[in-house]
Amino acid sequence: MPSVSLTVNGRKVSAEVEQRTLLVQLLREKLGLTGTHVGCDTSQCGACVVHVDGTSIKSCTILAVQCEGTNVLTIEGLAQGDKLHPMQEAFREHHGLQCGFCTPGMVMSAVDLLKNNPKPSEREIREWLEGNICRCTGYHNIVKAIQAASQAGR
């Protein structure tokens, strides 16, 4: 079995994986980071979004071995200790989550949006979220949360 070494949430890790092991499987099954979710098998839902080397990516659509030497950030690594990241705070403040299943992917995706486009329009937010499906919120409050996070200067 090949092994892969990478940095996850600031911690160096290595693990034996099968060639076919996906990044999301490495995170959930080997590293116990179950905050990253799997909602589909066709790269549609975005429940699995993490950052690899600072860019949001669907972790169900990349092999673990492709991530050799990379720096991965998951939802578990976003807050600073007990202090929520402003995007997490904004989701809480604006009720941007219900069942919470799409939430980690939504938040990671939204953080990347504001990194690239700190002041997006409502339209731009909605288009950016095209790859993240939420079945609970109707997106209304997710969009509001991202707008608020953007206004708060992130």
Binding site: R28, L33, T34, G35, T36, H37, V38, T74, I75, E76, L78, A79, L84, Q88, F91, R92, L97, G100, F101, T103, P104, V107
Partner: peptide, 14 residues
């Protein structure tokens, strides 16, 4: 919200 926002939910597959 706090648990879900920080990836600490406890769903069946977790």
């Amino acid at each position: 919200d706090a648990k879900f926002l920080t990836g600490r939910g406890n769903y069946t597959d977790d």
